[in-house]
């Protein structure tokens, strides 16, 4: 737990800094608006956490998010009655993509960096092959509600985020969590002590795929159909997880800290925007912060450079 504390400190500082410039942030509506905006990335980070802590990468989540939104729009095509069946289908799609990623990585022994890089190319190519180059169809109001609407004062996406967060914590406390961390920490030792490492990793990829499906549903709901909704999200999710102190290569870090990392990243974007460091130098600041955060965490740990890939 020692490693997870710094991220909460950083997050708190950033939140205070935002509140100083923008007092509206302290009101429930302002804060909930921030969490709502961050929800898709936080959920993606939770999914990515499972994969990273087991010693792998998932680069396919960004294009999977795009696929989910584009598929939803084409299948629903504005028809309210199709909302729920398509929602179910989207979750199954996320699950299947995760399953393939996991199976190729473990059973065919392809490094996950390559598996998911290939999956990224395949997904983004296939979906536009199917729709003829640009999204078509439209999302239903019922579908949009998850990313856009709210239950009383609380946005649906915040509630979904809470549910995902609780589920993730419970999973990590269960046997599965220990198995996963053990797999990422030392595969051989885990295997010798009876852990089914392949199964644990496949499940991690499935969870990441599911998280991408949920994030896609929220993002499509929030802003509607777009061909580039998922662009770059894979790197943001990995960055968020790493900011949360989770070690690439596996075996260390908590899921709560990974999700806090995503919130921190979102808070950082908001803050840079508020202070007018928009556009250009925003990326430079982001780059420095990422390296600094990881360096600060890593210097206290034994060097584990090459456990990854």
């Amino acid at each position: 737990m020692r490693r997870t504390l710094p991220i909460f400190g950083v997050l708190a500082v950033l939140l205070v800094a935002i509140a100083v410039v923008n007092p509206f942030f302290l009101e429930p509506a302002g804060f909930l608006g921030f969490v709502k905006r961050a929800a898709p990335l936080v959920i993606l980070a939770a999914g990515q956490y499972f994969v990273i802590v087991s010693g792998e990468f998932d680069l396919s989540v960004g294009s999977l998010v795009t696929v989910e939104v584009v598929v939803a729009a084409r299948l629903i095509d504005g028809d309210e009655s199709l909302t729920w069946p398509v929602l179910g289908l989207l979750l199954v799609l996320g699950l299947l993509v995760g399953l393939v990623n996991g199976a190729v990585t473990t059973l065919l022994r392809v490094p996950s960096f390559i598996t998911t890089l290939g999956m990224m190319l395949i997904l983004s190519g296939a979906v536009f092959l199917w729709t003829g180059g640009a999204p078509r169809g439209a999302l239903s109001q019922g579908f949009r509600a998850f990313g856009r609407g709210s239950l009383g004062p609380i946005p649906w996406s915040v509630l979904i985020l809470l549910a995902v967060g609780v589920a993730a914590v419970l999973l990590m406390r269960a046997d599965f969590g220990r198995t996963l961390v053990a797999t990422g920490d030392n595969e051989r030792a885990a295997a010798l002590s009876g852990v089914r490492v392949d199964r644990a990793r496949i499940l991690a990829f499935v969870l990441s795929g599911l998280a991408a499906a949920v994030a896609g549903i929220l993002l499509g709901g929030f802003a509607g159909v777009s061909a580039q909704v998922g662009q770059g999200l894979e790197f943001q999710a990995i960055t968020a997880v790493v900011l949360g102190g989770v070690v690439l290569g596996g075996g260390r870090g908590s899921v709560v800290a990974a999700m806090a990392g995503a919130l921190t990243l979102e808070a950082l974007f908001t803050l840079l925007n508020l202070y007018g460091i928009s556009g250009a130098l925003e990326f430079t600041v982001q780059g420095v912060i990422i390296i600094a955060a990881v360096a600060a965490g890593a210097l206290r740990l034994p060097f584990r450079l090459r456990a990854s890939t």
Binding site: F235, I238, F283, V288, I291, V294, A295, L305
Partner: peptide
């Protein structure tokens, strides 16, 4: 950054990439 700050190469070079991107955009 990779050797002395002990940052994973993925993050180290991604961070440097962002820094160069910012400079380019600027």
């Amino acid at each position: 950054v990779i050797t002395k700050l002990r940052v994973h190469p993925f993050i180290a070079t991604f961070g440097v990439a962002l820094i160069i991107k910012g400079v380019l955009d600027h």
